[in-house]
């Protein structure tokens, strides 16, 4: 296969986690960009449109839900598949967990969920599944 590697943007605020995701995905042959918060995420998306996004739901500056909705409402980027990464499913969204919230409110459901802690094998398998590889 000589096709160009697929581009993945990892949006995550924990440095150790970012490093791990980047490393594991690069080892699987993907080109990985990273963003630590919502603002940086938009910069990266605009300069180099990714084929897939992993999005951590608890981040500074902009909540994961906010960024998720912006992406889904953006004509240009609404079709980028998103894997939602959650830590613990706390009651951060009223009485609902993040997953329940998305199921009730989101215009389109995420392509997949990953619940921390994630191991490399599971991560790569999920990404491949979403990208139809």
């Amino acid at each position: 296969m000589t096709t160009e590697p697929k581009k993945i943007l990892v949006i995550e605020d924990e440095e150790d986690v970012v490093n791990f995701l980047k490393m594991a995905l690069e080892d699987a042959g993907y080109e990985v960009g990273t963003a630590y918060d919502g603002e940086e995420a938009w910069l990266r998306i605009r300069e180099n449109k990714p084929d897939l996004i992993t999005l951590d739901m608890i981040m500074p500056n902009k909540t994961g839900i906010g960024l998720y909705n912006e992406l889904r409402h953006s004509p240009e980027y609404k079709d980028i598949p998103i894997i939602v990464v959650t830590g613990v499913d706390t009651t951060s969204y009223g009485q609902m967990s993040c997953k329940e919230f998305l199921e009730k409110r989101a215009v389109r459901q995420p392509e997949a969920y990953l619940v921390k802690p994630i191991n490399a094998e599971e991560l790569v398998k999920t990404v491949r599944g979403v990208l139809g590889e």
């Binding site: 791990f20 490393m23 594991a24 830590g87 921390k116 802690p117 191991n119 490399a120």
Partner: peptide, 19 residues
């Protein structure tokens, strides 16, 4: 709840370290 979250983050980092 917070502890669980925190522990999961640490576990995630350890997972990454081990990888």
């Amino acid at each position: 709840a917070g502890l669980a979250h925190s522990v999961k983050n640490v576990l995630q980092a350890l997972e990454g370290g081990m990888y």
